[in-house]
Amino acid sequence: MAIAMAFTIVAGFSLQWLMGRSSFTESPARLHVHAMLFMGWVGLYLAQTLLGVGAAGPTSIALHRRLGWIGAGWAIVMVVVGVYVTVGMVRRGAVPFFFTPAYFLFMDLLAVLVFGGLVAAAIVLRRRTAWHSRLMVCAMAVLTGPAIGRMVPVPLVMPWVGLSVFAVVILFPLAGMIADRRRYGTHPAWLAGLATLAAMQLAIELLPRSAAGLALYRAVAAGSPGAAVAPDAYPPPPWATAPRAG
């Protein structure tokens, strides 16, 4: 499962670069920091999984535990940087055209906060290894969302992009639960993780349409170019604003 999720994330972002939709030179420094932190986590998670199953020999578990505290600090930084980058994009009015600005704000904020919450729960339950490993899978599944979104033909599934991505994201914990059930029965960690992910998506769908959600968006965007952008309207696509040749 760890390898499948890592492959999905690398494939999604690599596809963007190969298709010329991403640029290293034109992106601001904060996005480079964001990318290094999140892609670094992918490598750390994959290494921790291999160590956790003893793939590196008798010292694997001891090393897994030592690296785990690095991972805990890493996750905290990811949450802080993730919130900072999301708020910055909203304030600049630089939201992808296939999301309304309010939807994008809550989608990204809730995703990174739920990721952090699941990681925190997994760390608290680290001595209950069955809970720990399964909650970490659910946390990692959240991070596959942006990569999956880069592989989905978004113009064809608007305005259901978020739900379409979520339908793929939950396949990872569902696959783990099904594999478990065949061997051991349904572990409650899967139910807790899936319930958390479902609650996250429900909030993402409802908050941008609520008065409280729109008020929070306006408070975040106040005093910036994003304040002039309608929070519940889709931005124009790039080809609608690009200058015509000649």
Rank of each mutant, 00 (worst) to 15 (best):
residue 168 V to N: 05
residue 178 I to D: 01
residue 225 P to C: 06
residue 41 W to T: 02
residue 133 S to T: 13
residue 219 A to N: 08
residue 81 V to K: 00
residue 240 A to G: 03
residue 114 V to L: 12
residue 232 D to W: 07
residue 46 L to H: 12
residue 30 R to K: 06
residue 14 S to G: 05
residue 33 V to L: 15
residue 101 P to C: 08
residue 246 G to K: 06
residue 239 W to S: 14
residue 245 A to V: 13
residue 167 A to Y: 08
residue 228 A to I: 03
residue 65 R to D: 11
residue 54 G to E: 05
residue 47 A to C: 10
residue 42 V to G: 04
residue 157 V to W: 11
residue 168 V to W: 11
residue 170 I to W: 00
residue 197 L to H: 07
residue 155 P to E: 01
residue 44 L to D: 02
residue 174 L to H: 01
residue 122 A to Q: 07
residue 81 V to M: 09
residue 45 Y to F: 15
residue 98 F to Y: 15
residue 84 Y to N: 06
residue 226 G to E: 08
residue 202 L to H: 08
residue 21 R to E: 14
residue 109 L to F: 00
residue 245 A to I: 13
residue 149 G to P: 10
residue 56 A to S: 05
residue 217 Y to D: 09
residue 222 A to W: 11
residue 55 A to T: 05
residue 171 L to K: 03
residue 104 F to A: 00
residue 31 L to S: 10
residue 42 V to Y: 05
residue 62 A to G: 04
residue 215 A to H: 11
residue 57 G to D: 03
residue 25 T to S: 15
residue 106 F to H: 08
residue 158 M to H: 12
residue 8 T to K: 05
residue 218 R to L: 04
residue 116 G to D: 06
residue 100 T to F: 06
residue 190 W to I: 02
residue 183 R to V: 14
residue 134 R to V: 03
residue 222 A to K: 15
residue 105 L to N: 07
residue 56 A to F: 15
residue 86 T to S: 08
residue 33 V to M: 14
residue 180 D to C: 07
residue 214 L to A: 11
residue 53 V to K: 14
residue 210 S to G: 11
residue 1 M to C: 11
residue 132 H to L: 09
residue 87 V to L: 13
residue 162 G to L: 14
residue 212 A to R: 10
residue 213 G to L: 11
residue 194 L to S: 09
residue 53 V to C: 03
residue 205 E to N: 14
residue 175 A to L: 14
residue 6 A to H: 00
